[in-house]
Design a protein around this nucleic acid. Structure first.
Lengths: 120, 120
DNA sequence: AGAATTTATATTGTTATATTATATAATAAT
DNA sequence: ATTATTATATAATATAACAATATAAATTCT
């Protein structure tokens, strides 16, 4: 019972990262919003839980930028769903944001890494 | 000669990360604002350049939270400067934010990592 | 000595974006 | 039929990084 002590609460998504992980997710092929959210949640090991209020505005953003296109279709469960597909500019953007993330996390790592953990 | 082609422009600091790297920097001992900014800039390999408009509000934040204390003193260059010192709660906060960062970047990595880079 | 530069702190206003809360509709399950 | 689930969407809010600006003191230049 109560094995949920160390539950590792879900984390908020840091600003600027959502677009990246959505675009990356769409590299697997066209997906609808709900599917994208579920994919990210699962792949992140439940660390991320994309809220509706984050996901759909983000998708609108990506549409407006031309990084994805959308067309209505039917989901596995026979529901109406909008399928988003990565465009060529979207792939380019993904590549750019991926590199940016690599540089960023590397720089943070450099600061966090330290020999001297003591009293300075 | 023009070795600066691949100049790798500086990156903006992602929301939520600034506090972490400031707190981490102060693990080295008390520092004044300008010093903190220079340290981060150098340690990040010039990837980060902390703007005044980010740094000082952040320091006010940390003060208000009780994660740092401040006292006026004199810098190496004999200028008036405010030295910030990590408190015990600050160390605790640093630890928490560090773990959070580790979890976050690991989750992003899981999403970015992929066998199939092809057409899906 | 006086002017310009550098070091250093601080605040105001702007902007971007993730979240909360809410609304809507259609299909599946009971 | 009523309820739950799947799915999309938007308005309102909060947060935080940045740009621009102001201030002050010490150093350097001439």
């Amino acid at each position: 019972m109560a094995s949920k002590r160390t539950v590792a609460t879900r984390l908020e998504i840091m600003q600027g990262t959502l677009d990246l992980i959505i675009l990356r997710t769409l590299r697997w092929g066209p997906m609808h919003g709900h599917g994208i959210a579920k994919f990210i949640q699962q792949t992140s090991g439940e660390t991320f839980k994309i809220e509706h209020g984050s996901l759909y505005p983000a998708l609108q953003r990506l549409l407006q930028e031309g990084w994805v296109t959308a067309e209505w279709g039917t989901s596995n469960n026979n529901r109406k769903a909008r399928f988003y597909r990565l465009t060529a500019p979207g792939r380019k953007q993904l590549s750019a944001e991926h590199s940016k993330w690599d540089r960023f996390s590397e720089a943070v790592a450099r600061i966090l890494a330290s020999a001297r953990t003591g009293d300075a």
